[in-house]
Design a protein around this nucleic acid. Sequence first.
DNA 1: TCTATTGCTACATTTAATGTAGCAATACGC
DNA 2: GCGTATTGCTACATTAAATGTAGCAATAGA
Lengths: 112, 112
Amino acid sequence: MAKQTSSRSRSVRGSRTGRPIMVLLDLLGRRWSLRILWELRGRPLTSRALRTACDEASPTVLQARLSELREAGFLELGEGGGYGLTPLGRELCEKFMPLHRFAERWCSESGA
Amino acid sequence: MAKQTSSRSRSVRGSRTGRPIMVLLDLLGRRWSLRILWELRGRPLTSRALRTACDEASPTVLQARLSELREAGFLELGEGGGYGLTPLGRELCEKFMPLHRFAERWCSESGA
DNA sequence: TCTATTGCTACATTTAATGTAGCAATACGC
DNA sequence: GCGTATTGCTACATTAAATGTAGCAATAGA
């Protein structure tokens, strides 16, 4: 399961160019990435609580995503346990906040 | 290969609750979803051009994502060919624009 | 008609995610 | 000390999704 040690230009599946935005979109486009950031938006959660929040997603992927996001500098494992957003992660998360309102409108507009 | 006919509460893998934000995060969290929206941000592209823009991603997934995003109302297939963002899709895409600057800063801060 | 494009599909191979179980480490009460 | 319960994390077999290559029907132009 790979798990690179450093450098941002690692396993960039979605981009052979290495352009930052592509790296980011690739990382965020992996399963559960967005969801994890979203669930941690308010407060830190233990890995188990996060798993519960994420509809009992398998610990394998969750752990993989947590490692990637941690290595990316978006979240950290606080001493005493529990995953929380770093300042950088919080900043990123705030960019997604508008999606909440958007999603509500989006759903009510048709599918309902 | 499903390909549902309508309703927003379809194959919501990432959420058993059906909350709009979860549905959206799930959809956007699928491979190439974000990238497709990003690549179409400026102008419409034909499916082939889009494939090129997406590092030659396999047509199978691309086509799947295009169908999903189209069904979601984010993009449409213009008469005469070519995929383009709908007003709704454009709106969604604009929420991701700040990510560009963010990504640049993010990469230069460490990985470089 | 021949050529070139469009959107889209088949299908075998490879990769990623799921689901269930369980480990070592730490902290709790007793 | 002992059991119990939590933490973060891992193994591994099963299932689902993505890749890569090929090619189809439909349309447009020369």
